[in-house]
Simulated assay, not measured.
Amino acid sequence: MSKSYENSYRSKSILTTQNLILASLSWGVLALLYFLLFSAKIPGPTGIETRAEWYVIGTNIFEAVAYLGASLLCLRNWRSNQIISSRKVWMLIGIGMLAYFVGGIFFGYTELVLKEEPDVSIGDIFFVLTYLCLGTGMVLALFSRRINLEAWQWLTVVLVGGLGSFLAWWISQQQQPSSNQLALLLNWFYIVSDVVLLIIATIMLLAFWGGKVSLSWRMIAAAAFSLYIADMWFGYAKDLPNYQSGDILEVFWVFSGVLFGMGAVLEYDASLSLKRRASGRKRT
Rank of each mutant, 00 (worst) to 15 (best):
L129R: 04
N77W: 07
A52S: 14
S85D: 09
R76L: 12
E53C: 14
G108I: 02
M138W: 06
C133A: 15
F106S: 02
S121H: 13
G103E: 01
G94C: 01
N81Y: 00
I61W: 09
G123E: 05
D119T: 03
P43A: 00
G108A: 07
G58H: 05
A66F: 13
W54D: 09
M91H: 07
V120D: 08
E111A: 10
T50M: 01
G96N: 02
F101P: 01
G94M: 01
V139L: 15
M138A: 12
Y131C: 02
G94Q: 01
P118D: 02
S121F: 12
W78F: 14
D124G: 05
K115Q: 05
V120F: 11
T46K: 06
F107L: 04
Y100F: 12
T50G: 01
L72P: 13
D119V: 05
L75K: 12
R51C: 05
V128S: 06
P45M: 08
R51H: 08
G123N: 12
G108N: 06
I122V: 09
S71L: 07
E63A: 13
G108S: 03
C74R: 02
V89S: 12
I95H: 00
L112N: 05
E63W: 13
L75E: 05
L132P: 05
N81V: 00
F62M: 14
A141R: 14
Y55D: 04
Y55S: 08
I95N: 00
D119L: 13
A70I: 10
L73V: 05
G69Q: 03
Y100G: 07
G135D: 04
F126V: 07
E53M: 15
F107P: 00
G135T: 12
F106E: 01
Y55F: 15
F127I: 14
G108T: 04
S121N: 11
W78D: 00
G137R: 07
N77Y: 06
V120A: 09
A70M: 11
R87P: 03
Y100M: 06
Y100A: 08
G58Y: 10
I61T: 11
G96R: 00
E53P: 08
Y109C: 01
T50R: 08
E63P: 01
S86P: 02
I105S: 06
G47F: 00
F62S: 07
L72C: 15
G58A: 08
K88T: 14
G135L: 14
V120Y: 11
A66G: 13
L142W: 11
F143T: 11
L134V: 13
V120W: 08
L140I: 11
M97D: 04
R76Q: 13
L75A: 10
T130Y: 12
T130Q: 13
V113M: 02
I48W: 00
